[in-house]
C-alpha cells in the first residue's frame, strides 16, 4: 500500500506538471482549440487517477489477479529458494544493468565501433546473469559477429565500424 501511495502521488505530480506545461503552450491564432487542450485533459485525468490510487481505490481487483498468478510463480520461486525480496541491495541493483548497457551503447558505438561495443555489452550482461567467463567470453566474440552479419550484410544497416575496419565482414 505504501507503494501505491508513492506511485499515486507521483502520478498527481506528473499530471499537474503536464497540465501546467500544456497550459503555457502558445495558442494558435484564430482557433479556440489549440495544442494546449489535449495535454491539459490528460494531465487532469492523471491527477485524478493518481489521487484515487494513493487513496487505495481499486486495490482489491489487483489482489484477485495476483492470487491467480501467485499460485504459479511463487511456488516455483519458493522451490528455487530464491525470491528477490531477500536479495541484498547490491544484488537487486543488477536490474539496472540492461538499461545502463544500452546507454553505454549510445555513448560508445560511434567512438569505438559496433563490434567492440556489442562485445562489452554481451560480456557484462552474461556475467550479470550468472554466466561463467567460459561462456561469456566466447559469446562476447561470436554474438556481435553474428548480429553484424545479419544487420550489415543482409539488412544493410550502417553500423559504425570504429577502430576495427574489417572489410571482409562487410565493415568499411
Amino acid at each position: 500500500m505504501l507503494a501505491d501511495r508513492l506511485t499515486g502521488l507521483f502520478m498527481v505530480v506528473l499530471g499537474a506538471l503536464a497540465a501546467w506545461g500544456g497550459s503555457r503552450l502558445p495558442p494558435v491564432p484564430g482557433q479556440q482549440i489549440g495544442p494546449e487542450v489535449f495535454p491539459m485533459v490528460v494531465g487532469i485525468g492523471l491527477v485524478l487517477c493518481g489521487a484515487l490510487i494513493a487513496l487505495g481505490v481499486g486495490h482489491q481487483f489487483e489482489e484477485e489477479a495476483e492470487a491467480d498468478l501467485a499460485k504459479i510463480t511463487s511456488e516455483f520461486e519458493a522451490d528455487q529458494g530464491l525470491s528477490h525480496q531477500d536479495m541484498p541491495l547490491w544484488r537487486q541493483a543488477f536490474v539496472l544493468v540492461p538499461p545502463l548497457l544500452l546507454v553505454f551503447y549510445y555513448l560508445a558505438v560511434d567512438r569505438i565501433g559496433f563490434l567492440p561495443t556489442a562485445a562489452v555489452i554481451v560480456f557484462c550482461a552474461s556475467l550479470a546473469l550468472g554466466g561463467r567467463v567460459r561462456l561469456a567470453l566466447p559469446m562476447a566474440i561470436a554474438a556481435p559477429l553474428f548480429v553484424n552479419m545479419i544487420f550489415v550484410k543482409l539488412l544493410r544497416v550502417p553500423l559504425p565500424s570504429g577502430f576495427l575496419p574489417l572489410p571482409w565482414i562487410g565493415l568499411p
Binding site: 540492461p98 548497457l101 544500452l102 551503447y105 549510445y106 558505438v109 560511434d110 559496433f114 556489442a118 555489452i121 554481451v122 560480456f123 557484462c124 550482461a125 552474461s126 556475467l127 546473469l129 550468472g130 554466466g131 561463467r132 561462456l135 561469456a136 559469446m139 554474438a143 556481435p144 553474428f146 548480429v147 544487420f151 539488412l155 544497416v157 550502417p158 553500423l159
Partner: peptide, 25 residues
C-alpha cells in the same frame, strides 16, 4: 542458458532500435 540468450537480446534491441530510423537516440 539465459546468460547466453539475454545478452544477445540486449544487443538486438539496440541495433534494432537504431535500424528503425538510423538514429542513435
Amino acid at each position: 542458458p539465459r546468460a547466453a540468450v539475454m545478452p544477445v537480446i540486449i544487443v538486438l534491441c539496440a541495433v534494432g532500435a537504431f535500424a528503425t530510423g538510423n538514429n542513435l537516440f
